[in-house]
Design a binder for these strands. Structure first.
Length: 992
DNA sequence: GCATCATCTTA
DNA sequence: GTAAGATGATGCG
């Protein structure tokens, strides 16, 4: 076999200056399609031939890495460093023998001659980048890597041509790039690797990302267009349509043959622009038959470490790349040098995302909206607003989304609104953008005028509102005196939907339920991330600082995606009536109530908290002092690591237990078994510093400065079981177990003339266990109103309830809780500090007396295996994806979760029903619902009305399965009574 | 500056 | 043994 890549040898110097005449078009008719090549002869045992898209790394790393990378001369070196790291990473990974780094040149190419638009939208290259380029060229040469720049040819085309020749000659190829256009070159012998992000793209990855084969990429780009390259695409066809058409018809030629069968705007665009297609196709095609000469020997890497070492030393010295310089002194251990480079690559990767946004923002800014095909509109004048209003009034339902200055609803200011009345069409009304130099800023419609005209529509219950996480939007609109109705208020006659809650109800475990996650999971679409438009970390700006054309794309996409999700979920829910009921009758009404509760907030007594804080602090300081005395030196008592070393090494206390990651375990369970003065001090110190940092100080910080109220946020689509969670601050883990901890609770108060009232379901999960298991002994105990733990002890030990000792009751309580958690003998033994055998005996005795409970455990496990899910009392399906996991530990964990899920999840269903039931009867002028803590509701009630209100609440909660549940179509014949206990007082502690 | 670990709080 | 969230310390870069 002859040399593979020498068809047109003209010059054997690999840094040669070949040139192509840009006026000569490539031969498109005869052009080989790399994606369709036969690769059966390719020898994958050899190192791959590496083709590096040097221009990509130049731009990518320049924009992504911090400009603070400079040498002492002020030369910015970020692109040099980034490109160098990419090259070294490739060499370390593949140990290639042949390689080429390709760069574009400044000369025009045939594409510029074909189209004046081609890359015309690109701004001039920054001077800070230009001055780095010579260094990069020199570095590549000094590393002994062939460098290719050919006048009149783009790096893409050189790579395409060499990739074709290499595969033809039996080499497999790694193209090092992040440019998606290159996907048209992927086949079973050619992969793409982005050494900056680490992403590898093979045939399957192309299919996963775009739903088409690599050989369809050219047609895909032709249809969709590429704004950054100035390829127009077909109007009316975007990513989704292009994919659908290609999946159905294979290629554009076949589409045009069957144009009569194609529907919608896509067909119109194809017919009207059929003539442009061959032209755009040529622009989108990477040339694979360039008339260039390249000898295989010229693409050999010079691996002799001494060949260019002086040049490298000079470069590294001038650039002040110290690690790289040091690596040169170990020529026999190139891995050392490469290793240190690999480390710094990891570093750059951590910075990679930082400026990703800047780069894409700039690109978007340059090219304007590239989504004409999607019919996304920015509403900037009265006529456009008028027609939008008309469309919204006429629609049975529409998507609304608010854009604001913050993810925290309490501080968010409205910036704009987006709407969608059908999929693929969306409108953005910018209101308060204020980016300096953005010419659209002055054209925005007036915020208050717009809101005033929208108010009647948004408050119209006959027009359904669709949204993603509507509770947030409802909060925002409430700020502007708009009560969002027809969406989170229950409106059975419209299509109101919250897509986040729909996804959660359908399958809580399938995905997280943020919009980006839903788009990925249900629409196979990657959305524009917020970070892409607003930046990340310290550089992030608020949405009002985003240019309006970029903001509009982002906001329109949100509304559009939400509408598409609505379509998907509408079908899903039509096929599962119970899921539809859970969404519309349980979750959406709950969201509405949560919205009010969050807005209400709970009053705290700041002076009391501050006093506590001071007191805790004094005690903490005293404890620290005593600890240092005992230890003989000062150390950080709050550091488990330092404490472990002090206790078990320096003080030689026995009982040091190792934990994974190697340090001593100093958890409460370990320490409490040790008799040592330092242990007592530590435990007290920890308790106090926990209370101070997590509660007294934190609550004071988050309380509203004017009203002294604390407003938590409830997350309704987060847990695997249906429970809520609470953040910023978490008001579901306020201390109660210790006397000192309860002091925190005393800071939650009612205002003058009112009291705090707490109502909680007694033993709700055990009652659910009684219901689900139907166990005679357990149901009997609840029906007789016995002390359930004492009754359990009596039953298991075969004695009278009156004779049960406190220890016996405590053990029974542990086993009862253990049941709810999918108990093992191991776990129970640890809890009760007994041997595993004793614990097992106890469990065996329990199951003998409560055979129904044993059956529940067996049946629930079986159901999880057979169906892949378990169900709550209202029929909520809780999926158990790990139930067949290959790892035994994971699998057993999934079994325990499956046993617990119906109990915890049903309790969550019931408290949500209870919230709805109570909300229906609560006299709003006398009482407000403030908090939900899983089985407890907390209210603020007029002091003189507390008895009556308490009775209303108790009745509503106890009767919920006979009243509200039945009204909504859930008929549950509950096996035991639901018992609610209430109490009230000046603060939350007294009310409990 | 950001992620992870260990710890502690709740139902 | 279930389900959560917040914190300070620590390590990474």
């Amino acid at each position: 076999m002859t040399d593979p890549i020498n068809d047109h040898t003209t010059d054997s110097d690999h840094n040669s200056h070949q040139a192509l005449d840009p006026k000569t078009l490539p031969n498109f008719d005869d052009m080989p399609n790399v994606a369709l090549m036969d690769t059966s002869h390719v020898d994958k045992d050899q190192p791959p031939f590496i083709l590096v898209d040097g221009s990509y790394y130049l731009f990518r790393t320049y924009h992504a890495l911090p400009k603070t990378m400079q040498n002492s001369q002020g030369l910015i070196t970020n692109a040099i460093r980034g490109t160098l790291n990419a090259l070294l990473k490739l060499m370390r990974r593949y140990h290639p023998t042949h390689m080429a780094v390709c760069f574009d040149t400044k000369s025009p190419t045939f594409r510029h001659h074909m189209s004046s638009d081609y890359k015309a939208a690109r701004p001039p290259i920054d001077v800070e980048l230009v001055e780095q380029i010579p260094y990069i060229h020199r570095l590549v040469s000094a590393l002994g890597i062939p460098l290719l720049r050919i006048e009149g040819a783009e790096a893409d085309d050189i790579i395409g041509t060499l990739a074709y020749r290499a595969v033809e000659q039996g080499h497999h190829v790694v193209i090092s790039t992040g440019d998606k256009d290159m996907m048209q070159l992927v086949n079973d012998g050619v992969i793409l690797e982005d050494s900056f992000t680490g992403k590898i793209t093979d045939t399957q990855a192309v299919i996963d990302k775009f739903g088409i084969n690599p050989n369809q990429m050219i047609d895909f780009l032709t249809l969709m267009g590429d704004s950054s390259d100035g390829i127009k695409g077909v109007p009316g066809i975007g990513k989704k349509t292009a994919k659908d058409l290609l999946v159905e018809y294979g290629d554009i030629d076949n589409m045009l043959k069957h144009i009569g069968f194609i529907k919608g705007r896509g067909a119109k665009g194809l017919i009207e622009h059929a003539d442009d297609i061959p032209f755009n196709r040529k622009l989108a095609t990477i040339i694979t038959n360039l008339e260039i000469g390249q000898d295989w020997n010229d693409l050999k890497i010079n691996t002799d470490p001494c060949a260019h070492i002086e040049e490298l030393r000079t470069l590294y010295t001038e650039l002040e790349f110290r690690n790289e310089l040091a690596s040169l002194d170990h020529p026999n251990h190139p891995a050392n040098g490469l290793q240190s480079v690999a480390d710094s690559q990891a570093n750059t990767e951590s910075h990679a995302q930082v400026a990703k946004s800047l780069q894409s923002t700039n690109t978007d800014n340059m090219t304007g909206s590239n989504h004409q095909d999607k019919a996304w509109h920015t509403v900037l004048d009265e006529p456009a607003f008028d027609s939008l209003i008309e469309a919204l009034e006429a629609a049975p339902h529409f998507v609304i989304d608010t854009e604001t200055t913050s993810v925290h609803w309490r501080e968010a200011q409205i910036v704009g609104l987006s709407f969608a009345v059908q999929a693929h069409e969306a409108y953005y009304i910018p209101l308060t953008h204020r980016l300096e130099g953005d010419e659209l800023t002055a054209k925005q419609l007036d915020r208050d005028t717009v809101l005033a005209r929208l108010k009647p529509i948004l408050e119209n219950p006959n027009i359904g509102k669709i949204g993603q996480h509507l509770k947030y939007d409802a909060h925002i609109l409430a700020h502007y005196d708009i009560d969002l109705v027809g969406a989170i208020h229950e409106q059975p006659n419209n299509w109101a939907m919250d897509t986040m809650l729909a996804s959660y109800v359908i399958n809580a475990a399938a995905t997280r339920h943020g919009m980006d996650d839903l788009a990925r999971h249900y629409l196979q679409t990657q959305t524009i991330s917020f970070e892409e438009v607003a930046g990340k970390g310290a550089k992030q700006v608020t949405f009002d600082q985003v240019a309006i054309d970029i903001a509009s794309d982002y906001a329109c996409e949100d509304a559009d995606i939400t509408y598409q999700l609505f379509d998907v979920f509408s079908v899903e829910l039509a096929n599962d009536a119970n899921n539809a009921k859970l969404l519309h009758e349980l979750e959406i009404p709950t969201a509405e109530i949560l919205c009010q509760m969050e807005a209400n907030g709970i009053l705290i007594k700041r002076s009391f908290l501050n006093e506590l804080s001071k007191r805790f602090d004094e005690e903490i300081v005293a404890l620290e002092k005593r600890a240092y005395e005992v230890a003989g030196e000062e150390f950080n008592l709050g550091s488990p690591k330092q404490l472990g070393e002090m206790l078990f090494e320096k003080l030689g206390v026995p009982g040091g237990k190792k934990t994974k990651s190697g340090q001593y375990s100093t958890g409460e369970a370990v320490l409490s078994k040790i008799d040592h003065p330092l242990v007592d001090i530590t435990l007290e110190y920890r308790g106090l510093s926990k209370l101070k940092s997590t509660y007294t100080d934190a609550l004071d910080n988050v309380a509203d400065a004017e009203t002294d109220r604390v407003h938590t946020s409830y997350h309704q689509a987060l847990t695997s079981t249906g429970r809520l969670s609470s953040t910023d601050p978490n008001l579901q883990n306020i201390p109660i177990r210790t006397a000192t901890g309860r002091l925190i609770r005393q800071a939650f108060i009612a205002p003058e003339g009112r009291v705090i009232l707490a109502a909680d379901y007694s033993q709700i999960e055990l009652r659910l266990m009684a219901h689900f298991s139907g166990d005679k002994n357990l149901t009997h105990a609840f029906n007789e109103g016995l002390d359930i733990h004492a009754a359990t002890a009596a039953e298991v030990l075969g004695k009278d309830v009156a004779d049960v000792t406190p220890t016996e009751r405590r053990n029974a309580k542990a086993i009862n809780f253990g049941l709810l958690y999918g108990m093992s003998a191991f776990g129970l033994a640890k809890q009760l500090q007994m041997s595993r055998g004793e614990a097992q005996d106890y469990i065996d005795m329990y199951f003998e007396r409560y055979p129904g409970v044993k059956n529940y455990m067996i049946n629930t496990r079986a159901s999880a295996y057979e169906q892949g899910y378990v169900e709550t009392i209202l029929g909520r399906k809780l999926y158990t994806p790990d139930i067949n996991h290959s790892n035994r530990m994971v699998k057993q964990g999934a079994e325990r979760a499956a046993i617990n899920a119906p109990l915890q999840g049903s309790a969550a269903d019931l408290i949500k029903l209870a919230m709805i039931a109570v909300d229906n009867v609560l006299p709003k002028d006398q009482a407000k619902m403030l908090l939900q803590v899983h089985d407890e509701l907390v209210f603020e009630v007029d002091a003189d009305k507390v008895d009556a209100v308490s009775q209303l609440i108790t009745d509503a909660m106890q009767d919920v399965l006979r009243t509200t549940a039945v009204d909504k179509g859930w008929h549950v014949d509950f096996a035991v009574p639901l018992l609610v206990e209430t109490d009230s007082g000046q603060n939350w502690d007294e009310a409990h």
